[in-house]
Design a protein around this nucleic acid. Sequence first.
DNA 1: CACGATTACTACGACAGGTAAAGTAGTTTA
DNA 2: TAAACTACTTTACCTGTCGTAGTAATCGTG
Lengths: 107, 107
Amino acid sequence: MISSDVIRGYNDTMILYMLLERESYGYEISKNIRRLSQEKYVMKETTLYSAFTRLEKNGCISSFHKDGEAGKRRTYYRITDEGQAYYREKCIEWQLTQEVVNTFIKE
Amino acid sequence: MISSDVIRGYNDTMILYMLLERESYGYEISKNIRRLSQEKYVMKETTLYSAFTRLEKNGCISSFHKDGEAGKRRTYYRITDEGQAYYREKCIEWQLTQEVVNTFIKE
DNA sequence: CACGATTACTACGACAGGTAAAGTAGTTTA
DNA sequence: TAAACTACTTTACCTGTCGTAGTAATCGTG
């Protein structure tokens, strides 16, 4: 299992990636991150929901509700244009980060 | 330039990598990290020195002084066996981290 | 139809690592 | 002799994550 300090700074990116595919809500995103990472990474609920708050404040995502849905009321999120731009920046940054960290890793 | 949240959790690893080669001190390690990363990453002084404190407390490194040296008094560090073990763990963790994060990155 | 499991959040406080800002002080170079 | 560089130390602060807890609706199963 991966420690959180490592991924720190990429939780937001992972969430944005999920929202690129389609609008979604907390619980679903959480499940999908878990599945996509093949159970290697599980984002804590508190981390996830505090990321939503932050991302919405930054203008990277926007929230809304769907009516006429069964089940407990969900807060849906969709990615904004700023969110997409931010995501692309983080992808570039990640390439650079890998290069740098790999310099200090053996094997 | 690389944001700190990304590298967070790998500053210690980078320092340990430098100390694997030979014992050294803050300023020199700082210069070498900068050089090795081709100026892509510059570790802040406070980050560096607080990492030393943490790593020594964890038993990953040990400090000492050399006498009969010119220049301002330096605190040298060498890596311990625990430090080497910790470094190896972080290398494995890093491989896993790359796999996971790359799943959420486009291009 | 009762009861546990699952879904879907929210609130609060704590912590660790990183940072800015500032200071101290010796050494080298122009 | 002044500026630049070396080599650290101290302090207070910020941010993202985490532990713990709680709420509440819905679903599945016997």
